[in-house]
Design a binder for these strands. Structure first.
Lengths: 147, 147
DNA sequence: ATACCTGCAAAGTCTTTGCAATCAA
DNA sequence: TTGATTGCAAAGACTTTGCAGGTAT
């Protein structure tokens, strides 16, 4: 599948150029490690959920030696600038989603798989009044399924 | 506030007897550590969210030396028999809720506080078709707020 | 009596951090 | 050149486990 769209590069089929453009658009320096990880993260829209370990493996298999610590730090950085969204699946698994738009997921407890839900379930919900002196930061929702 | 109701003990105001009855009803042996933890967990309905660390501190302050490992194991056991519900708040915090009925929570990212939502938000939701060959195991939902 | 439970310390998992070496602008 | 970034190993936070001794029925 085609990479995530971006208007900042002239040739969207060139992954490296595309990655560099995305990074600069986000105000980040386009270093070697970041370009590789950006490419691996955003190249295939159909594969938008990943973990630090999975991304590290992908980079390794692609022949790029990026340390696991850098993968963790980069995922955290990308999340902080809005390039990624973090999804805590349970107490020990954190996924990162390259689709930062409002949507929810199925989580398959057997396979550990995260699957997008097409309908936005939250559109139907009327949120209750928030606790005093607080503001809404978001809604985390996971529909748990099992084989 | 009054302890959680239970029809298996003759005197609901006696915490220890109440705890023993709850445990036996759940098919668990009423050991010393479990009775203490049950009492601390279910005595005050208004204080229904806890973590392993908090429960350990409570027991310690109450003069009961229950090891942290036993607290962890007991919380896990109680969850497995349906006495508690586990709530993963983010990748590093697991809360346990003594209210196992369907309800959702606010999570205050500043204070780490978990607050019950009175309305059942999921009542309004029509779940989409599940992925093939899977069955619904539950819906995790957290409304994130911040001061 | 016997299977179960507990405490302790050790091990495990996942993530972050300190610091020297390296890199991008 | 110079501050930002990276890799490595060590440290951290949280949780589970192995095993010897103690407990409930």
């Amino acid at each position: 599948m085609a990479p995530k769209e971006c208007n900042a590069c002239s040739d969207p089929t060139n992954n490296t150029e595309h990655a560099i453009a995305m990074l600069e658009l986000a105000g980040l320096r386009a270093t070697g490690a970041r370009v590789i990880l950006t490419t691996l993260l955003f190249d295939d829209i159909s594969d938008c959920h990943t973990t630090a370990e999975i991304l590290y493996e992908k980079a390794f298999k692609a022949g790029s030696r990026v340390s696991l610590a850098t993968v963790y730090n980069t995922l955290r950085l990308f999340t902080s600038v809005g390039l990624l969204r973090q999804i805590s699946v349970n107490s020990t698994q954190v996924y990162f989603d390259t689709d930062t738009s409002e949507h929810q997921h199925f989580y398959n407890e057997n396979t550990g798989e995260l699957i997008n839900i097409k309908e936005n379930l939250l559109a139907e919900i009327i949120l209750p009044e928030l606790p005093e002196c607080t503001r809404l930061m978001g809604v985390d929702m996971l529909v748990l399924v099992s084989n």
